[in-house]
Amino acid sequence: MTKNIYSNRLPVVQQLREANELSEYPKTVSDKRIILIDKTIAAYGYRRDALLEKLHVAQNIYGYLEKKILLHISEKLKIPPSQVYGVATFYNYFKLKKPGSHAITFCLGTACYVKGAEEILSAVEREFNVKRGETSADGKISIFVTRCVGACAMAPNVIIDDEMIGKATKETVLDKIRSLL
């Protein structure tokens, strides 16, 4: 007797879906911004190799890479979803979670580290109760860590919402963040 493996799995899938542990299938994205991604895909002639470029575009549009976007790209380019996911999670630049409204990026490159960036970072973590790589509970700030922004001569550097603070100190950074909240 042959069994339909797919139908047999349905009850489990159903349970998981009810427990809200699954992203929705089938994969329709009813969002106008998706057209922009489609255009890029078409511009590259549906070439699979330019996957990184498409993920860049998607992240620029949405701010982060939701699973449904990854799935959309996977469908359009005919790349297995696991491969898209593997690529998206390999590179630090791609974010799969929604970031907070203010991004605070600490450079932990050699020069900044030697000049005490770690101390500033710890102070910020303590004061605002957010760990590096995470977003605060109220969704207001996210702390990111990067390895060198390339302004080593001005170390330590902290980037707060696209504004670079060079030769940063605990006080300047904390004051700046406080003023944002």
């Binding site: 699954l22 992203s23 299938y25 699973k67 297995p80 979803p81 696991s82 999670t89």
Partner: peptide, 27 residues
């Protein structure tokens, strides 16, 4: 190609589709 590796370095692990539970894999 249901499986791939997610993340990297010491955090690498095998992933099914878009990091779904196996039962939910559509491929």
């Amino acid at each position: 190609h249901v499986l791939d590796v997610k993340r990297r370095g010491k955090d690498s692990s095998i992933v099914i589709d878009l990091d779904e539970p196996w039962a939910a894999s559509y491929s």
